[in-house]
Design a protein around this nucleic acid. Structure first.
Lengths: 186, 186
DNA sequence: GTCTATACCGAGATAGAC
DNA sequence: GTCTATCTCGGTATAGAC
């Protein structure tokens, strides 16, 4: 999915990676869409968990910002959005999970901005959530898909200046969680 | 491309739309990548022209914002970015044109922000350019690919409040240019 | 659960006649 | 410039044996 796009993920190639026959992919998942949905559900579960941990950490803004910018996440997420765009059978479920992430973020931001004494008429929490997602996703797309980074450093500095005013300097280094291989057992 | 993604654009289907034989697609463009590049070049040409007109208009910020948010543009642009992501032969050219749009925007913003008496240490022009692109693209993706719009109205209002402080109310309605059919003559 | 076999479709691309 | 014909490849999916 990452290297050639979801359309390049075929039962034959999946089977080859797993050193099995293509027919087994259909045995386990029936259709390719079922396979994509299975992967997506696993990602959503892990992602919501990780986002909740970020929001509950000592520096929620820093943690959420770093998590949103994680290149391993953004690239695959964009691929699933592309998938949703073109396969209407899958679209509803992907959209629903995206809403879920946003709702969780908004309730997190509401709490946070209140703690820092910001009036919600000034910057509503939901606007914060949308802005954070927009910027992190877009920089990720440009960088990973096009290898382009003009203005990225300046924009990151701008956003981080804002976070720093609320939470001070980043206390811990950006987390690097290992990417584990996907197996049928998952 | 819009309905099923670039991967669904095949010589056979293109030919069928044009009521011709698939082999003629190869006659005119040799490979499918050549066809995609031809379409892309035409879009870049028209897009740069339109962006220049926006920047030269009476309300450049409003015009650029409206142009960037045009749903007809964003959806296809995302498809080309996905294409660039997965076809390294095409990637360089798409990235180069994206840089071109950004560079033009930055020089526009530099002029504009100066006119409105904003210090560039506060919000550098290049950050404005990246933010504008990020927000408009991201809202477009969510809306068109997922049919999702939670927080969009609030975010649009937030951005437009910023523009309004500089340029006052939007003087003209958002432009709606007709989409013309693509023919071989193009 | 894994295999062989197979049906069926559609892709990109080229050769060569007209 | 458009056609017919054709090559080669790879895709989804199912049936049925073991």
């Amino acid at each position: 999915m990452l290297e050639e796009g979801y359309a390049a993920v075929t039962s034959r190639r999946v089977a080859a990676k797993a050193q099995l026959k293509p027919q087994l992919v259909h045995y386990y998942f029936r259709t390719m869409d079922d396979l994509f949905l299975a992967i997506h559900r696993r990602r959503v579960e892990q992602g919501l968990e990780r986002q909740a941990r970020a929001l509950a950490s000592d520096q929620p803004l820093w943690a959420l910002w770093d998590y949103s910018r994680d290149p391993r996440g953004t690239a695959l997420t964009m691929e699933f959005i592309a998938l949703a765009n073109h396969r209407k059978a899958i679209r509803a479920e992907i959209a629903a999970s995206a809403e879920l992430f946003r709702v969780e973020q908004v309730s997190g931001f509401s709490r946070l901005l209140e703690q820092h004494g910001m009036r919600s008429e000034e910057i509503p929490p939901i606007v914060c959530a949308v802005l954070l997602s927009s910027i992190s996703r877009f920089l990720g797309i440009e960088h990973e898909a096009l290898g382009m980074s003009r203005g990225h450093a300046e924009t990151v500095a701008f956003v981080e200046g804002f976070i720093r005013r609320l939470e001070g300097d980043r206390a811990i280094a950006r987390a690097e969680e290992p990417v584990h291989a996907i197996t049928i057992a998952d």
